[in-house]
Structure formats: C-alpha cells, structure tokens
Design a protein around this nucleic acid. Structure first.
Length: 564
DNA sequence: TGGGGTCCT
DNA sequence: AGGACCC
C-alpha cells in the first residue's frame, strides 16, 4: 500500500556476527583464536566461526558440541548483562550517528532495522543537485550537528544479489547489465539502494572501529527482504537486493525461513501443500504434527491460493499476511527508536525445584537482579553520570508478574500470575534498599503468586518447578522523560512514524525551531544529552551508565571460563 | 533446549 | 493470561 513506485521504503538490516561469542572475544582477546562456545545450561547458545568450522552448531547440546570439537572452549552465557550492555551501546551509538532518523528498531540483542528512506532521499536530492564528481559527501544527519562521510561514486561495496546485477558506477545505473535503458522509476530506486548500500558499509565500519564487532547487513525495500538479503553473504559482509528480482529471490526460501512464519504456521502450510493424511481423517491436533518436509515459497505460491490458507487453521488475518509476504509485499514499518524496554524479566531454569526454602532462595536471587535492572534501565541518576540532581524515573512499570513452568505442565507451557506493582518496590529502587525490598518481594509477591498459580493449576501438592521467571511489565515509554514527537502530534507509537518523517522533510531548513517544539516537557535540551568520557560518543544522558559498564568490561579480567 | 524480548487476542 | 512470533 505504500508501494507507489519511487516511494518504496529503503530498509537496512544489521546483524552482528555470532554476537555473544564476539562480546566474549572482546572481554578476553585470547579467545579470538580458539573455538569458542557460549553455554546456557545444557545447550550452546552460540559459538564463533572457528567452532563452526569444526562442526559445532548453534543451539547444539553441550555434549554433542564437545563430541564434535573436543577442544571447544566454553564460557557461561546465562547472565546476559554484558550482551545487553554491548547491544545497547551499539544501538545508541548508531542512533547518535544518524541524528534525525527515528525509525530504528532492535530485534533481540544482535539485530537492528533502520528505515533510511528519508535520509537516502535527502542525500539523493543533494547528489542530483550537485556538480558531477567522483565522490559525494553523504550526510548522516537530518538535523544538527551535521556529519558526513565520503562515498566513491565509481565503486559500489560488495555484494549485490543477483551477483553484479547493479553496476558499480552511480552514473551507470540508468542502464541494465546488457546496456538496456531502464525505466525512470527503476533508475531512481537503484540510485536510492546505491546510496543505502554505501551507508550500510559505513555503519558496519563504524561499529567495527568503535565496538569491535563485525556485522552482516541486508539492504532492500522492506523489513522481510532486507533481513533475508543479509543472510546471503555472512560474516562481515552485506548484500543489496536488485529490486526487480525479489520474487525470484523469495521463491527459493523454505516457507519456515520467512520472518513471521514460525513453527506453527510453517507446519500448517507444509501440510496444506503436501497432505500426508486424507482430508476426512484429519483431526485438528494432527495439523500440528511436524512432518519435517521442505516446502518452498514458490510451491506455496503456485500450489495454494490465499483462500486455501485462509480456510486452514491459520485463519484469514494470518493468511493475508503470509500471502503478502511471500509475494514480496511487506508493509511492516520499522518501529520508532525505543530507549526504555516495555518489560524487564529475569529467569532461571532447573531440572527440579521442590523445596520451599530453595524456591525462596531462587526468588531472592531473581528479584535482586530485577531491582538492579530496574535501577539501571529505568532510573536516571545525574550523579552517577557526573552531574548533580536527584534520581528520577524515566518510565515506571505498572505490574509485577511471576511465571513458572512445572514438570507436570511440561514443555513450552508457562503459567503466569500478575499484580499491580506496589509503590514500596519503586521506593526501594530509588533508595537503594535492595536487601529489604528483595525479601519483601519474595515473601509478599512472588511466593503468594506462585501458590495461587499452583493451586489454580491443581498442583498444590507435589509440585516440581522447571522454570521461575519474575519481572515488571506495563512500562510505558516516557522516552527520556519527554514526550515523543508522535505523542506531541496526538498519534501513538509505530503507526505515526512515517508521518513524522514526512513532517520533518517538509519543515526542511527550519529543523532547529522544529526540534525545540518536539519536546513539550519544559526542560532544557542540553540536559538530555551527554558525552562519554572514554570514547567521546554523544548519547542520551541516561544511557551513559550502561555505556560506561560496556567500557568497564572491555578487557576486564575475572569472568569465569571453563576450558573443556 | 536458553534467557531473554515483541505484539496480538 | 496466554499465545504467536523474534533472537
């Protein structure tokens, strides 16, 4: 629907290579040259490329990984703090680099989508209005302070898909590879992708030089295509999709590889394409039996209709989305930059947990981590950042939630109970009374909700916990304590972001005036921004603390390592 | 088979 | 409160 030609969005997807392993390699540089795996309980969360060459796989059982690679070095990755800090630091760094670009969304700890449409269009206008030359200064910012980087107009960074389908020289984009003239809309789209490709390379270079993480990137016209494009050339590389060949590109993927089509949906679709059971004999439960066949997007498109999908257990709404995705139509907008999470949870898993005292110890430990994270992610402490002033909440959670999995309940099934978050928890965080607050949380909140959940699930006696998760939720973004641009215009979140970009474009040279009006909270702007004393990076002041922990961990000693 | 996250129903 | 999806 936003696919008016010439107005396609331009999306960059960045994915840091084997991120957890890379974070550990920065903590302990000697790990760079050995096969390295990151352990969480009985599985390897991820591993570096040296380990992969030796036959180690992501999400493999530890014992299988050790069998494949006996000298695998294993580190524990159950505490996500270093990964979370590095992830936030890189995200904030990129956000600080692309000032004025607000559609920037994290997926997990190691992926970022950036909608660079406005930025690229701004630069294309500059380029087309300037005298022809061999280089062009790409403007990274849409608002001051302005920064640029030079791009070589005769050299397109590798790679394109299909190979060499886009000429390396900007001035040659008007002709296809056989010298045939291209339609104007195609030329313009190629020019925009060309600029975005240079930008992606620059961002990857910056991430490498400031944070020492290599990344892979995909450049295309939607989230789905950008993400899939990034899988073509992998590690430390990138791929731009030629815009007229996207259907052929999509057709080759197994249906379950399409982002948004998960295990349930993929199983249903595979069954529809290749029914193993006569229709009359199909019972509802059998729809979900995993038959492990490979069905490509092409097969789904040609052997089924959208109506077939809609009549399946997928339902009409999901069917419509799937049908659009596999035809290269993907309307999903990149969400607005988020600096506060909407929930904070902490969990641990067990083979068996049956004693009340053991449960209380677990609750204490989880609550302690929960409070630390509330303090570092939701509270701004001017003094910790080297200034003066009182601590204040950036955003406040509304609910407390406890989630458990019991042996009887089994597998993926969690049961959860929640309550309004009492104000004494908030005071405890602000006053730094961790010990008192932890005890009270475990006794008055966690334990009671657990008893309620077990009772209502009929497991009052003989319970056996496999997972305990506690957290706070309903954190509504105050985005740095100020209202966001979207809220200022009376919109809400994601849906309004495209309109914001349009507004910014129209305001054009009057950005400074505009920036003043974006914030209606009355505080001075200076206040919000801080500069890191170690690397000089400019970032939102309340993010400095996590950023500082990122620096503190660089080359630090003393984290546990287990040589297998 | 982890320890997180998101949004939708 | 649960379920789908993502890493």
């Amino acid at each position: 629907m936003t696919d008016k030609r010439g107005k396609e969005r331009i999306i960059i997807h960045i994915d840091y290579d084997c991120f957890y392993a890379s974070v550990w390699e920065n903590l302990r540089p000697e790990l760079r040259t050995v096969p390295l795996g990151i352990q969480q309980k009985s599985i390897l969360a991820t591993c570096n490329y040296i380990a992969r060459e030796r036959g180690v796989k992501k999400l493999q059982l530890i014992k299988d990984a050790k069998a494949a690679c006996p000298d695998l070095v294993i580190v524990n990755g159950e505490d996500l703090t270093p990964f979370r800090d590095a992830s936030r630091s890189i995200f904030n760094f990129i956000a600080g680099t692309l000032v004025g670009t607000n559609q920037m969304e994290r997926l997990g700890f190691d992926e970022i989508f950036i909608d660079v449409t406005a930025l690229v269009d701004h630069n294309l206008a500059l380029l087309l209005n300037s005298a022809p030359g061999d280089t062009f200064s790409f403007h990274l910012t849409l608002s001051p302070p302005h920064t640029t980087f030079p791009i070589n107009l005769h050299n397109l960074p590798p790679y394109t898909h299909p190979s060499d389908s886009i000429p390396p020289s900007f001035s040659s984009l008007s002709l296809d590879t056989s010298g045939q003239a291209q339609p104007p809309e195609t030329i313009r789209l190629l020019q925009r992708l060309y600029l975005a490709t240079h930008l992606a390379t620059h961002l990857r270079t910056l991430v490498k030089s400031t944070h020492n993480h290599t990344a892979s990137a995909g450049i295309s016209t939607s989230k789905t295509l950008a993400k899939l494009a990034g899988t073509i050339n992998k590690p430390d590389a990138q791929t731009v999709l030629h815009p007229t060949t996207t259907q052929a590109f999509l057709d080759k993927f197994e249906i379950g590889k399409i982002p948004g089509i998960g295990r349930k949906a993929a199983t249903i679709i595979r069954q529809l394409v290749n029914p193993l059971i006569e229709p009359e004999e199909q019972l509802h439960e059998e729809w979900f039996e995993d038959v492990k066949q490979k069905v490509t997007v092409l097969e789904v498109r040609t052997k089924l209709t959208q109506v077939d999908l809609a009549r399946s257990p997928l339902g009409g709404t999901e069917a419509a989305k799937v049908w659009a995705w596999i035809h290269g139509l993907d309307d999903q907008g990149v969400g607005a930059k988020k600096t506060v999470p909407s929930q904070i949870t902490v969990e641990d898993t067990f083979r068996s947990l049956t004693r009340a005292e053991a449960v209380m110890e677990v609750l204490d430990r989880l609550h302690s981590k929960m409070l630390s994270r509330m303090s570092s992610e939701l509270v701004e402490d001017p003094e910790a950042a080297g200034g003066v002033g009182k601590k204040r909440w950036i955003a406040v959670p509304k609910t407390y939630r406890l989630s458990i999995r019991t042996r009887k309940h089994g597998f993926g099934n969690r049961v959860s109970r929640s309550m309004p978050l009492p104000s004494w928890v908030l005071s405890g965080v602000i006053n730094g009374d961790n010990e008192g607050t932890v005890g009270r949380l475990s006794r008055e909140m966690g334990w009671n909700l657990m008893k309620r959940a077990l009772k209502e699930e009929g497991e009052e006696r003989g319970w056996d916990l496999q997972l305990v998760n506690v957290g706070v939720a309903g954190i509504e973004g105050a985005e740095g304590g100020r209202r966001t641009i979207g809220e200022f215009f009376g919109g809400k979140g994601k849906q309004t972001v495209r309109e914001e970009v349009a507004e910014v474009e129209e305001m054009d040279g009057e950005w400074e005036l505009w920036e003043e009006e974006c914030y209606v909270d009355g505080e001075e702007d200076e206040d919000v921004w801080g500069v890191c004393s170690v690397c000089g990076g400019r970032m939102l002041r309340f993010t400095l603390e996590a950023h500082a922990r990122f620096h503190a961990l660089e080359h630090s000693e003393g984290m546990d390592m287990d040589m297998a």
